[in-house]
Design a protein around this nucleic acid. Sequence first.
DNA 1: ATGGTAGGTATCCTA
Length: 265
Amino acid sequence: MRLSITTWNANSVRLREPPLRRIVAEIDPDVLCLQETKVEDGKFPHGLVTELGFEHRFVHGQKGYHGVAVFSKLPLANCRTHKWCGIEDSRHAVCELAGGIELHNLYIPAGGDVPDPDENPKFRHKLQMLDELSDWFADNRDDRRRAVLLGDLNIAPLETDVWSHKQLLSVVSHTPVEVERLGRLQASHGWVDAVREIIPPEQKLFSWWSYRNRDWNASDRGRRLDHIWLTPALAPALRDAAVKREARGWEQPSDHVPVTVELEI
DNA sequence: ATGGTAGGTATCCTA
């Protein structure tokens, strides 16, 4: 069977009814994972999500900041959260999909402005969460595990994942120390970068454009911060991947656009 | 070198 999974940093789910409707109309994913829902669970817009055709869901939010959610047309099992760095942030939801596929929906800290863990606690937190995730996946490595790791990882690892490699080398999201730490996380379970399996690494590819740029499309100062990874046991199921660039120009846009993979399971 | 915009919460923090 065919299974499509989309990840999208919504930047406030309560303000994104128009783009959510368009994601369903134009992408129609079986599973839709959100980050930065920015709403506590008691105020989550469940009515809209039901109307959009997602009967099954798991939300893990908090007031004002962060928040992750999984919507699905297929049953979800064993949904749970993970706490990292000793902080009660809503940054990680885990669910099991049809056929025992494990889905990790992640929102890694942006990391503030100063790329120095000694000076900047937000950057320290970002690196620490990546390290703790790496240790967890290394300690629990299982070559039979069929899993998806996706979300806003807030790091653009490749030179072609940013509009200017040189100009972003000391900008948080593309510094060598973060790229190295993300590489460690990727190696911790042999994660395959599904999107770059389909779209060649030589090609520039972005999933985020700042709100601060006057004309996001013309200046095109983007970064690829949103990722979908597969374990080696699941990677052979990959059939397609796409980044919905035009969604950045829709009505009431998030600063991130949806990223989708198609699997044959 | 700087500031630009958006969102949430409550007058400033985060991205």
